[in-house]
Amino acid sequence: MIKEEEIKQEIIKNFSYLDGKIRVQRVRRIFVDVPYENFDEVFKHLIKNTGFEMLCTITGLDEGATFGLIYHLARKDGIVLNLKINVPKANPIIKTVINYFPGAIMYEREIVDLFGIKVEGLPSGARYPLPDNWPIDEYPLRKDWKPENLNQKMEKK
């Protein structure tokens, strides 16, 4: 795990506040917790300077008081860096990454639909993956969401 350690040290060298927030779980798997406000600079640095040229997907998580968002970034040599940020549930807004990865548009739309997180800079267009007549304020992957919520709303209509 020499390469992984090198990447870890390189990140700490550039962003000292990430010391202790980086975990090398196994060969080719790194997990990093990044403060919400520092996301831009770390994300940009990883893509431009550390060789994480691919975005596998974006995972949304409901973690009680906050939403977790994990950007799974991959390098050509198979190393994956899971960059995680936390967004307060009261006002969940993230910035789009389609200027780096145009293909991320589908992943971001999915997060908008399933978690109700707002994505700044996402162009308008067809939603994904929920149907057009899906009631507003129903976000199925939130932990407090139950399918019954939907039935009641649909019956009212």
Partner: peptide
């Protein structure tokens, strides 16, 4: 323009 999601079954 592409609209997807017709096969979404809520598997996650």
């Amino acid at each position: 323009n592409l609209r997807l999601g017709y096969n979404h079954r809520g598997i996650e």
